[in-house]
Design a binder for these strands. Structure first.
Length: 851
DNA sequence: TGATCCCGCCAACGT
DNA sequence: ACGTTGGCGGGATCA
């Protein structure tokens, strides 16, 4: 550790400066620990260092900072080199990173840039050491990031020092779960209350809690939720949980919950801190605790900001300008009931409906809370809630009030332009074309990745927001649907085959290939790149097959036209792209190889582990319901070679793919070349799978088999199955069913060797596989055989009849929606300055300005 | 100044 | 024992 640290430290910090300044001092190389001499000693190297830095830094620092930032954009990946150069240069101070450059947010950006938002099946292993080293930071910082990512299920711990990257695949699902948990925890009420208090009078810590407060907190108090798991992830997390993973992880989830359940989806850290603290220790709300909480929240907020889930804004009120964060992530609508509460413009309908969608039940099981009242609001609260709701409604309905109602269902979704969430999306969407361009140009992986991210996120946003509408329609919906608007969208959404068919983007020059499969309920989007030749056939086949299977399935084109420049324009993006070290490919391959070898060499248990990993990742992918990007094969290689190799997928290409560990970027240009794949373009296709909770898996298995011919494309069920299995990691290419057309298309030779790891898997495959797989998919990744087994046994996610429609609606709405289009064009620049707006909060008008 | 939040000590944990 | 995690809060920076 020290070894790592030492070098890093030197590089990262301006030790060099110190060195020069304080000649004769202990070797700067001394690791941090040694440094720490008696604190009292003024001459501690540390103190000196600090003093020196502070003294020298101001101007230099700022100057440097600018420079660095600009540099970062293009050279971040090689930060080390840069730093070194600087150091060698006359101005050592330059190296002085400046606080901002070390910010968690920036670091997180770098971190995120390493991995694709929607990784393919492969396992994207994250080695903390490596990451820390490459990013030039102490491992501690990586933990901060990983912890919150973990709270969102974007990563999961695999083993010591090892995490698996899941990307945003599970994000929506996670958010749904979190929202639900938040609701069950009465966070909405708590937030309302605290906000109210703040308005009324300055909330002072100890004095504050009156009965009312106590009541609220009381509820959450015993409910003391722990880490919220995702289906299929529980076990995994469980292992992690044994440890009292208290704060960051959980705090992060809670923080997100607060956003998800509060109506203006805006929160100040103070409010959040108060709630979170209150939850834990009602007794001692001391200042220091509060401060600490806030500090943590800053950490979390920074990461969430990097994920673009929240955004910092400033709320101006009489008292002054207060910093706050607003939710900019996808709109999540967990259940109908809540929607009613939040959105209903008519008198409050009974807040709680007895009929609980299967989905809910599921989630209930998944996220059991201490407080048993999960689904029923305590009567005593009802009044309060109602009154609050009424107030809210008033406020929202105020003519002047901007649509801050994003949280309130469909209204927001219908007004993409106004909706904050949507606003973010357009810019991203606009970038889709850019992606194609880039690819054609044969850009670096990084660039691609970035773009993909954008497009994907955009898609996600789009899809997610619309989701609201469908729900109301859901047959299961307990209460009468009150929203007229729903009808409209629904009609559009009516599942029609036409809608189902995959859409190819017009602007794409040559057929391009990327298909996105979404599970309606989750609105997850998966993007894949593949060579055009391969893609087309596959995508079509799959899509149709799926569709046919589920009459409910819908697909929509998410692509938006936009200026390709957008991507570049966005500083963050460009930066990210640039940051991505090109050389990575060089090093990473080796590492991956090593890893793979190591894995292979490992004893049984270890092997197991590897298997698990593969499963995990693959599972991760599916769980969300999404699906199986046809192209995945291709780029799958890049990621976890070790696993892949085992799998035998793309074995033929193996050699060629030495790509980076991160597997960050799907098919590299080089890789493609190796494969003899012509330049590829990306055609975004969105396919919504039937919302039925059954999820992709069931659909695939059943539908494929049964209705294979129904779709225009005759995809033999077996092929689908194989495909699925492979993705899941249950089977290897070699093992796959002979009749897999897809594979044939791909011309991917199956490799016998790969089979080895599949022994277990094989078993699974045979027989129950189809069913089980589906379940697995449904539940999310599994990380162990045990888990797998367990998972199989778990009940499938409940079907949500309503979902399909919703999906459809979403589909249509966002992407193609007229509103959207306009908004998109407007925001093509990629940044969201649009967010300036006014928002009404109880009794006062607040101006929200973006930072 | 107050808002931010980097930094890294050090204890809990895992192996 | 030693390495990994990550709680925690001092105090440096930023605005």
């Amino acid at each position: 550790r020290n070894m790592l640290k030492t070098p890093l430290k030197q590089m990262a910090t301006s030790h060099s400066v110190l060195t020069e300044i304080q000649s004769g001092c202990q070797p700067l190389t001394t690791p941090p620990k040694p440094r720490k001499t008696p604190p009292a000693d003024p001459w501690t190297p540390t103190s000196n260092l600090k003093m020196l830095i502070s003294a020298a830094s101001p101007e230099i620092r700022s100057r440097e900072q600018r420079r660095e930032l600009s540099n970062n954009a293009s050279e971040v990946p090689q930060a080390k080199h840069c730093l070194q150069e600087h150091l060698s240069g006359d101005e050592c101070e330059k190296s002085q990173p400046s606080r901002k450059e070390k910010s968690l947010g920036l670091l997180c950006h770098k971190f995120l840039a390493r991995y694709p938002d929607y990784p393919s099946t492969e396992n994207n292993l994250i080695c903390l050491d490596e990451v820390a080293e490459e990013l030039n930071v102490e491992r501690r910082r990586i933990y901060d990031i990983v912890n919150v990512l973990e709270s969102l299920h974007m990563v999961s711990r695999l083993a010591k020092n090892r995490y698996v990257w899941h990307g945003r695949g599970n994000l929506f699902k996670t958010l749904q779960a979190l929202k639900k948990a938040g609701e069950e925890n009465r966070y909405t009420e708590q937030v309302e209350m605290i906000k109210k208090r703040e308005y009324e009078h300055e909330f002072d810590f100890d004095g504050e809690r009156n009965e009312e407060t106590a009541r609220y907190f009381g509820y959450s108090e015993h409910s003391e939720m722990s880490f919220v798991e995702l289906p299929g992830t529980e076990f995994h997390a469980a292992s992690v949980n044994r440890r009292k993973d208290k704060s960051l992880r959980v705090m992060s989830q809670k923080f997100v919950m607060l956003f998800l359940v509060s109506t203006p989806q805006m929160l100040s850290l103070e409010v959040a801190a108060k709630i979170l603290i209150g939850e834990d220790q009602l007794e001692d709300l001391d200042k220091s605790k509060f401060k600490t909480k806030i500090r943590r929240l800053y950490d979390i907020a920074n990461v969430l900001s990097s994920l673009e889930l929240i955004k910092k804004v400033h709320v101006t009120e009489e008292r002054g300008r207060k910093p706050a964060f607003k939710w900019t992530g996808p709109t999540v609508f967990p259940d109908i009931q809540d929607q009613k509460l939040e959105t209903t413009s008519t008198p409050c309908p009974p807040p709680i409906s007895e009929s609980i969608p299967s989905k809910e039940q599921c989630s209930k099981n998944l996220f059991p809370l201490r407080g048993k009242q999960n689904f029923t609001r305590h009567p005593s609260l009802m009044k309060l809630v109602k009154s609050i709701e009424n107030d809210r409604r008033k406020i929202q309905s105020a003519p002047t009030s901007p649509v801050k109602i994003s949280s309130s269902t469909f209204v927001c979704s219908l007004q993409p332009g106004t909706d904050q969430n949507l606003s973010a999306f357009p810019s991203k969407m606009a970038q889709v074309p850019a992606i194609a361009e880039n690819q054609l140009e044969g850009q670096s992986k990084k660039a691609r990745v970035v773009k993909m991210k954008l497009s994907q996120s955009a898609l996600e946003c789009t899809l997610s927001s619309p989701e609201v509408v469908p729900k109301p329609e859901a047959p299961l919906a307990t209460g009468p649907t009150q929203q007229p608007a729903l009808t409209q969208p629904l009609s559009a959404c009516t599942p029609s085959h036409s809608s189902v068919s995959p859409v190819i983007l017009p602007h794409v020059p040559s057929g391009v290939p990327y298909a996105i499969y979404l599970h309606p309920s989750q609105t997850h989007t998966v993007t894949t790149y593949s060579p055009s030749f391969m893609l087309q056939p596959l995508s079509c086949a799959n899509v149709t097959g799926i569709k046919s299977i589920n009459s409910k399935v819908l697909n929509k084109v998410t692509t938006e036209e936009g200026d390709s420049q957008t991507a570049t324009d966005d500083p963050t993006k460009s930066l990210t792209a640039k940051e991505r070290p090109p050389m990575k490919s060089e090093t990473s391959p080796q590492r991956s190889l090593k890893r793979s070898q190591a894995l292979q060499e490992n004893n049984l248990p270890k092997r197991f582990r590897s298997d698990e990993e593969s499963l995990d990742t693959s599972m991760t992918f599916f769980p969300s319901g999404y699906l199986i990007p046809l192209t995945q094969y291709i780029h799958s290689n890049r990621a976890g070679f070790s696993d892949k190799e085992k799998a035998g997928l793309c074995s033929s290409q193996r050699t060629t793919y030495s790509s980076p560990i991160a597997g960050v970027v799907p098919g590299t240009a080089s890789e493609l070349k190796a494969v003899n794949i012509p330049a590829f373009h990306i055609t975004p296709l969105n396919i919504m799978l039937s919302p039925t909770s059954i999820g992709a898996a069931p659909v695939v298995s059943n539908s494929c088999l049964n209705t294979s011919n129904s779709s225009s494309v005759q995809t033999p069920s077996p092929s689908v199955l194989n495909f699925t299995l492979q993705h899941i990691g249950l089977i290897t290419a070699g093992v796959q069913v002979p009749s897999n057309p897809v594979l044939q298309h791909m011309a991917v030779p199956s490799q016998p060797e790969s089979v080895r790891h599949s022994s277990e898997n094989t078993h699974l495959q045979e027989g129950k596989v189809s069913k089980n797989i589906l379940r697995f998919i449904r539940h999310g990744r599994l990380s162990g055989k045990d888990r797998a087994v367990i998972a199989v046994q778990q009940p499938c996610v409940p079907r949500e009849p309503q979902e399909p429609q919703a999906a459809t609606e979403n589909f249509f709405r966002t992407p193609g929606g007229p509103n959207t289009a306009s908004s998109l064009s407007a925001n093509s620049d990629g940044t969201d300055r649009t967010s300036q707006g006014t928002l009404y909060i109880p009794q006062r008008k607040l101006e929200v300005s973006e930072d």
